[in-house]
Simulated scan of single mutants.
Amino acid sequence: MSNEKQYPMTAVGKKKLSDELEFLKTVKRKEVVEHIKVARSFGDLSENSEYDSAKEEQAFVEGRISTLESMIRNAVIIEDEKNNDKVSLGKRVSFFELPDGEEETYTIVGSAEADPMEGLISNDSPIAKSILGRSVGEQVKVQTPAGEMDVKIISIN
């Protein structure tokens, strides 16, 4: 068994990573190679900022490809449990910040597919760590960088 880090994620999250990897390998790599060719045509490479920029872009793309390949290879798909009694990975959870906060709803996913702006929070986030394993109706203290807050879980789907 490999000692590589495992990446919990939903099947949808793995598909998004696979799509990004395919785009980088089939489209972006070719674009970067073309940028390098054009930049080389400008002459002296030692003072060629376009060439330097294109090589930096190539390094970034190749690094991202390597990262995505590792994440996909070590993906652990989160099974959709039918039990909505407890907060777990893959669940959509709604809660109120107490005493009078607004309702917030997030889906708890692996760090590889977290996107808070889309309502997807990492299982490693302070909120997720605090509510994992909890039930509807429970009040939970959450330690955040901004301080402690209390939340009440109102639904799990």
Rank of each mutant, 00 (worst) to 15 (best):
K37F: 09
L24Q: 10
V61S: 03
K82R: 10
Q6C: 10
K129R: 07
N83S: 13
E62S: 10
P99L: 09
V33I: 14
G147T: 08
I131A: 06
T26S: 04
A128S: 05
K55H: 13
Q6F: 11
T105L: 01
I154G: 08
I156A: 02
K152G: 07
G119F: 05
G90N: 05
N123R: 11
G147S: 11
D85I: 12
S66T: 15
R64Q: 08
I108N: 01
S111I: 02
E113R: 07
K30P: 07
E4I: 03
I153Y: 04
E56M: 04
S41F: 12
I65F: 04
E4D: 15
V151P: 00
G137I: 03
N3A: 06
R92W: 06
N84R: 11
T10V: 14
P8V: 08
I153T: 03
V27F: 14
D124N: 06
S122V: 03
T67Y: 13
I108C: 02
A75Y: 13
E34N: 15
F96A: 02
D124C: 02
I78N: 07
P126R: 02
E104C: 00
K141Q: 05
K14W: 09
D52T: 05
T67A: 13
K82E: 06
K14I: 15
K28D: 02
E50N: 08
V93N: 01
S155T: 13
